[in-house]
């Protein structure tokens, strides 16, 4: 259902017609640094990756403080555990996990001060992108002046088949000319599937001729879907903004970040000149 939101988002672009945007300086309060554990298991590549750090103040431009001495483990349903190794700079990684669909994993993180955090996630089924289609669109050139109006703009639609009889959750990510597009979260469930159980989603970003774009379709567990849909809600600021809040996550303690299990499929497209 969420993908209607992205469609809607387009229309708000039109309102930039008479408005003006500028950067202002505001005095903001600062909370004490809070622990962030950003962790996921990629069941397609059989890797687990964790980034551990503290939050910093909004205007702080330096790298935030990281944690390199935590004990990170993945615990399987049978109780066996896998260590996720510290690689420095707050980064932890392990490979060759051999996770199977519907298997449940618990991640356990223990800090040197004795504090311990846990989160559980289940492996979703893999999914593959059927196709990516491009549609020449009017959007872009006219408003905001962000793209070159002499070039043809494209809206890109990604298509895939949704398995019948299960609740499935997805996230679509994109790289444009090698760079991650991180401004927008495209997160959706399967309620919008059509008669052939096909789902299509636009990406909330304009592409133009000459771009090469790589889409990653992520199949998500429910917790990860909820977490990223909350991020998407907060992201939609300005027109149609929700009152901002901190998304709930599946960690046992009052910390930031999430632990999710994903499956990934990728497809690239080049927009000819």
């Amino acid at each position: 259902m969420k993908h209607i939101l992205y469609i809607l988002g387009w229309s708000f672009l039109i309102l930039s017609l008479s408005s003006c945007e500028d950067v202002i300086e505001l005095e903001l309060k600062n909370d004490d640094p809070q622990l962030v554990i950003d962790a996921h298991l990629n069941a397609s590549s059989q890797e687990a990756q964790v980034w551990m750090s503290y939050s910093n103040s909004f205007y702080d431009n330096t790298d935030s403080e990281t944690i390199d001495d935590a004990m990170v483990q993945l615990i399987r349903e049978d109780g066996t555990s896998i260590i996720v190794e510290a690689k420095g700079n707050g980064y932890y990684k392990t490979e060759n996990i051999n996770a199977a669909v519907d298997e449940t994993f618990k991640m356990q993180v223990t800090l040197t001060n004795g504090n311990s955090y846990e989160a559980i996630a289940k492996v979703p089924r893999p999914i593959s992108i059927d196709s990516v289609s491009m549609i020449a669109t009017a959007f872009g050139g006219g408003f905001g002046g962000q793209s070159d109006s002499s070039k043809q703009n494209y809206q890109l639609l990604t298509y895939w088949k949704d398995p019948v009889g299960t609740e499935d959750y997805y996230r679509l990510k994109a790289k444009k000319n090698g760079a991650d597009l991180t401004d927008t979260y495209v997160v959706l469930d399967d309620a919008g599937a059509n008669d052939e159980n096909q789902i299509f989603s636009p990406f909330f970003e304009l592409f133009e001729e000459g771009d090469s774009v790589e889409f990653s379709l992520l199949s998500l567990d429910k917790n990860t879907y909820d977490y990223f849909s909350n991020l998407a809600d907060i992201q939609g600021q300005g027109f149609g903004a929700t009152t901002p809040f901190n998304p709930e996550n599946n960690w046992s303690g009052d910390i930031l970040g999430y632990f999710g299990v994903i499956q990934v499929d990728q497809k690239s497209i080049y927009l000819p000149q």
Partner: peptide
């Protein structure tokens, strides 16, 4: 308003 920020999945997220 935000009272801080942090990074998740390579993107900056505001702490409210």
């Amino acid at each position: 308003y935000p009272v801080g920020k942090y990074t998740v999945d390579g993107a900056s997220v505001n702490l409210y």
